[in-house]
Design a protein around this nucleic acid. Structure first.
Lengths: 236, 236
DNA sequence: CGTATACTTGAATTGAGTCAATAAGTGTGG
DNA sequence: CCACACTTATTGACTCAATTCAAGTATACG
């Protein structure tokens, strides 16, 4: 994990979606002074569960997985982060989960204390964080429905649809997906085994709803059907 | 659902835990001016999923269940609220889930717009909300681990331990629990059927870890063992 | 006291997990 | 460019934890 002190904000590709979106260029310059850039290679760990939570981050490139482990090694991925996503809200003094790079990742690091000092000066920053937290809570509730009540195929369909929407929001077209994470990651995110995840994707392929030219690519053939399945509307 | 405009804050039993805890008595009086009190009978609905989210609430007495429904009626309880708990963060313009009274409930209602106007005057209120949201996000992640990766007995043990801790925090002693919610509610919260929930409680009774004198009461006999089971440390 | 609701228990079923083997990619260095 | 090692993904056969369906038993309530 390397990091430099540089002026990344000016050329930031995700500024419109990031926390910083609420700041004026001049304010952004001030924020710049406390930001460090962080690079991670695939598999590298940004922080561990239980580490002191002294920084928050914004993903600028690549993908992060958040995960929690049980004593015996069972893994739950609590979220995937995409470029623009904010990271570090869900913590008190220590991080509540680990954050690992899926592919090559770049982030902005904000020292917690310094960022909070900024709140006095730019209260809109705090408002933005509350907004982000609120969105995350809504997403968390949806994930609880998924984990608690959806079948394997409903879980996988939901995942594909959500990923597709996310890609669309980034202007990437929501039909041809490039999944950066492995089947094991997806399974641990959906509360499924790797095998069930793979089998379910195979079944969706046989049913003509998706196509897997070559993993990591997946093409959504019948998004409307997938959406129905995702919402549990496709019969029992 | 009745509601009056009265001065409830002065005699509030949960002021120390509620959003209001960050306000001075004089500030509290100002807040008082926008608060309405709401009473609910068991089973009554405070708001429905998809209703416009024009108010936020603080529970002062009784218990609320938050739930989401799938198209075919499958139910996921996304949370139980206890006296002192805040309600209404996880929403944009519309509520993301329904809120129903479990027993007799009293709440403070804050019109959203008016509360937000208060933020200018009392920025510590907004800080408090961010703190609450952060705590809820941590809890949501724990619930994902539970729903995605824990066995039935681990789920039930976790629920009992969490309920116990909550009771202790309210100064109620964490060994003799009064569960206001039904087995069906608990099951829908843990991603289990009513029957499995009941069977698992029976099994814990046979193992001597708990005692069920007469539902709704449950006595925790071996809290340390329950904690081990909850964390998945009690063998495979 | 009868009726509705909540809870428990049993028997049969099943969706997803586990274990195990194979196939398909990816990358490395000779 | 190919052979080897390594990781990721798929597929199959079997198992099992939890669900479903079906009674039956408490408990609360008007």
């Amino acid at each position: 994990m390397e990091s430099i002190r540089y002026s990344p904000c000016a050329a930031c590709e995700v500024r419109d979606r990031a926390v910083c979106s609420v700041l004026q260029p001049r304010e952004l310059e001030r924020l710049n002074s406390i930001v460090t850039e962080v690079w991670l290679n695939p598999g590298q760990i940004l922080f561990h569960q239980e580490d002191p939570a002294d920084s928050v981050f914004n993903v600028t490139r690549g993908h992060i997985r958040l995960l929690k482990l049980l004593a015996d090694g069972r893994r739950q991925v609590t979220g995937f982060l995409y470029p623009g996503d904010f990271l570090g809200l869900a913590y008190g003094t220590h991080y509540a989960c680990s954050a690992e790079a899926i592919d090559k990742v770049t982030l902005c690091r904000f020292p917690r204390g310094k960022l909070e000092a900024f709140f006095e000066e730019f209260p809109q920053l705090e408002k933005r964080l509350l907004q982000i937290a609120s969105n995350e809570l809504v997403a968390a509730q949806d994930q609880m429905v998924l984990l608690g009540r959806k079948s394997a195929v409903e879980k996988v369909a939901t995942f594909l649809i959500n990923f597709s929407r996310h890609a669309e929001r980034r202007g990437e077209g929501g039909t041809e997906l490039h999944l950066p994470m492995t089947r094991a990651d997806i399974g641990d995110y959906l509360g499924l085994s790797t095998e069930t995840t793979s089998r379910t994707l195979t079944q969706l392929t046989k049913d003509g709803l998706i196509e897997i030219p070559t993993p990591p690519r997946i093409v959504l053939r019948q998004k409307d059907m997938l959406e129905e399945i995702a919402e549990g509307e496709a019969g029992p």
